[in-house]
Amino acid sequence: MAHEIPELKVENLVVEYVTEDAVVHAVNDVSFEVPKGSTMGLVGETGAGKTTTALSIMKLLPDPPAKLVSGKIEFAGEDIVPYSEKQMDALRGSTVSMVFQDPMTSLNPVLTVGDQIAEVIRRHQRVSKLEARTKAKEMLELVGISGDRAGEYPHQFSGGMKQRVIIAIALACNPKILIADEPTTALDVTIQAQVLSMMRDIKQKFDTAMILITHDLGVVADICDTVAIMYAGRIIEYGKIEEIFDDFKHPYTEGLFGSLPNLQKRHEKLKPIKGLMPDPSDLPTGCYFHPRCKYATAECAKRQPKKTYLSDTHYVECLAYEEGTGVKIEGGDIK
């Protein structure tokens, strides 16, 4: 197969929040592709720019203060960055949908859940009110809620059920691209598992290209095909799930895996990554991770690493893998 046009392609995306006192560099030159039917995990700490990336794809950045400075966002080869609000509204909810982070606050408290699902159907499909309502009930059934509850209000549902309703809204018009922003973070573990398996089923059924934003590596392992590790607004390592989980290269990725509790050695202390994420309005020079990196050398503070491809699908942004930088990783867990 020749190079197929991916469902979603983000190229050199740069997003800043411009305030009176500072410019916050939220997303710094991010590129990735998500083909049809595949899922990319976007992993990183709070403040790494994951949600900003997602909102850019929806073109729902709060403007002001957010500014999409440069880059391309292509839906099936079509760049949507120059699109007007009206053109975007035709895509939002039908071609591209988003499942938001907090189910408790993401539904309108004064409208019935049935109305909230039917609304998006009425917007994008030529159906009568009655048909939209029937379809809304079907969507509820699809996410495992009885269709009879369509007339109820969000406060009558539990957190997990609200998240299912939000997923039902996002999927109501069979979007080609689905962005799930920490869909399970606000839910307890058993409900998490249910929601995740439901999302996996639906993804397979509709062949949706999906971005799953999370900081839970377990969730990533469960449903993603590729993983992008984000740090301070950059994707510092990217690869297929096996490449990242079995053969991670970046010291930050190592830190992420190192900070997971080990079930076999329960007495072992957790190994946190020392320090905090840099202030995005005052990013360090060179590699953004060098102040926290245990392998950092003087060179790391001077030169910003480029993408180094370790295979067709796996790249890392770290000077240790670039030719002739003299930076070496020694004595760590990195193979």
């Binding site: 929806m58 729902l60 609000e85 009206k86 975007m88 509204d89 035709a90 895509l91 939002r92 909810g93 039908s94 949908s97 988003m98 938001f100 982070q101 907090d102 606050t105 993401s106 539904l107 309108n108 408290p109 909230q116 609304e119 998006v120 917007r123 994008h124 939000i166 809204i169 996002a170």
Partner: peptide, 15 residues
């Protein structure tokens, strides 16, 4: 500024 307004915007129903 509420989350549900963002949800509503994400449906493409217009401002």
């Amino acid at each position: 500024r509420q989350d549900y307004i963002r949800t509503a915007k994400s449906k493409g129903i217009g401002k």
